[in-house]
């Protein structure tokens, strides 16, 4: 008797990709299908590279860390935003549809310019520690103390990898290009919580106190539900909303 477990015959995946190359004046957005044999432990990172190497070398997509930590590979996977590199094909149906994240400038095929968007957001919301004399901290002396739990809380909010999934999952952001999104609002709460940042509530209000900021959020909660890092986005946005309301009085 054969005691070695026989695995089922591998599936043949049908991967439909929304293609468009803005550098090519003749290109128009269209879906293209690729057939691929599924392999053990195959991720979309592996699958897309295989397509590029064997079927269509012009296919554009972005991967950097391929470990779910850099935020490069956000895309729409069967309608939902997610990180392609850590999506196993075995968790998906045989037909997989991939599209670039909406809400960002398209570079080509599945590659979008999240970097430009995020830099714009960071400049607009000034997502850095604002403190006087930062250039003249005496780095020979002991560092400022901080409560251990506070440090952990800050890290909790800092785990955002700027993947853009929350923008793609947010109806508000899709309708209003200038909305800073959950990613931006979360970062503001991160600096608000940080005692090293000397900005007052009133100063924060100047950054987010309008419809492009916290009051633009309509609590659609797509951000929270699709954030690959499971950040407590609803909690943070609500916190910011309450604080900003209290400030405005």
């Amino acid at each position: 008797m054969n005691t070695i477990p026989v695995s089922e015959a591998p599936r043949s995946l049908l991967i439909r990709i929304l293609r468009h190359n803005p550098c090519d004046p003749d290109s128009a957005p269209h879906f293209e299908s690729f057939e691929l044999e599924e392999a053990e432990a195959m991720t979309l990172f592996i699958a897309l590279n295989e397509i590029r190497q064997t079927l269509d070398p012009s296919l554009q997509f972005d991967f950097v860390c391929r470990a779910g930590i850099c935020g490069s590979c956000g895309m729409i996977i069967n309608g939902r935003p997610g990180l392609a590199c850590r999506t196993l094909t075995r968790d998906l149906p045989q037909c997989i549809t991939l599209a670039p994240l909406p809400g960002f400038e398209l570079i080509g095929d599945l590659s979008v310019n999240t970097g430009k968007w995020m830099r714009g957001m960071a400049e607009r919301l000034e997502t850095w520690v604002h403190a006087q004399h930062l250039e003249r901290v005496d780095i020979d002396q002991l560092e400022q103390r901080m409560e251990p739990e506070l440090a952990e809380k800050l890290y909790e909010l800092e785990r955002c990898i700027e993947c853009g999934c929350c923008i793609a999952a947010c109806g508000t952001a899709q309708m209003h290009e200038d909305f800073v999104g959950a990613v931006g609002l979360n970062q503001v709460t991160r600096f608000h919580l940080d005692p090293r940042d000397e900005r007052s509530d009133a100063e924060f209000y100047q950054l987010v106190g309008d419809e492009t900021g916290v009051f633009g959020c309509m609590t659609l909660l797509g951000c929270e539900d699709y954030c690959p890092k499971d950040l407590p986005l609803a909690t943070q946005i609500a916190f910011l909303r309450r604080r900003m309301v209290a400030t405005a009085r």
Binding site: V137, D140, E143, R145, M146, P148, A151, D194
Partner: peptide
Amino acid sequence: APKAIRELAAWGVPWNRVQ
């Protein structure tokens, strides 16, 4: 190295702390 870490601490890195 200690200076580098202290600079980063001032700039905002939430280093884990001694409890």
